[in-house]
């Protein structure tokens, strides 16, 4: 699924940087019914993980009350040049990944 990642492309060593992520997902709560009364099954992202050069630096659990197309923003310290890996995991075996790279001077 489409994802929008905002990581600064360059940063100074030790600088605190903000990472912003936005991904496509309907986040169907599992509480809604169709016009003919059938329950719409739950279909949400349940967890999000961010790794910085392989180390997990941020994790979030998501719940049915979170709006569609979840947006997450968090901070980390720029230690070294490398890659951020993002992973969204959800119901019905949903999995989506994205990456972004950073140069630390």
């Amino acid at each position: 699924m489409a994802a929008l990642i905002n990581v600064p492309s360059r940063a100074k060593r030790g600088e605190i940087i903000e990472i912003r992520t936005l991904t496509s997902h309907i986040m169907e709560t599992g509480f809604r019914h169709t016009a003919d009364g059938k329950l719409v099954p739950r279909d949400i992202i349940t967890s999000f993980i961010c790794r910085y050069n392989g180390d997990e630096i941020f994790r979030a659990d998501l719940f049915p009350a979170i709006a569609a197309n979840p947006y997450l923003s968090f901070f980390t310290v720029a230690k070294e040049s490398g890659k951020f890996e993002f992973e969204w995991i959800g119901d019905n075996g949903y999995s989506s990944t994205a990456t972004a790279s950073i140069t630390v001077e």
């Binding site: 489409a2 994802a3 929008l4 990642i5 905002n6 912003r20 936005l22 991904t23 496509s24 569609a68 197309n69 947006y71």
Partner: peptide, 14 residues
């Protein structure tokens, strides 16, 4: 205003 926060941009990418 921020194209990485605007959920409409997900549709533009698609």
């Amino acid at each position: 205003d921020d194209d990485t926060a605007n959920p409409g941009m997900l549709f533009v990418l698609d």
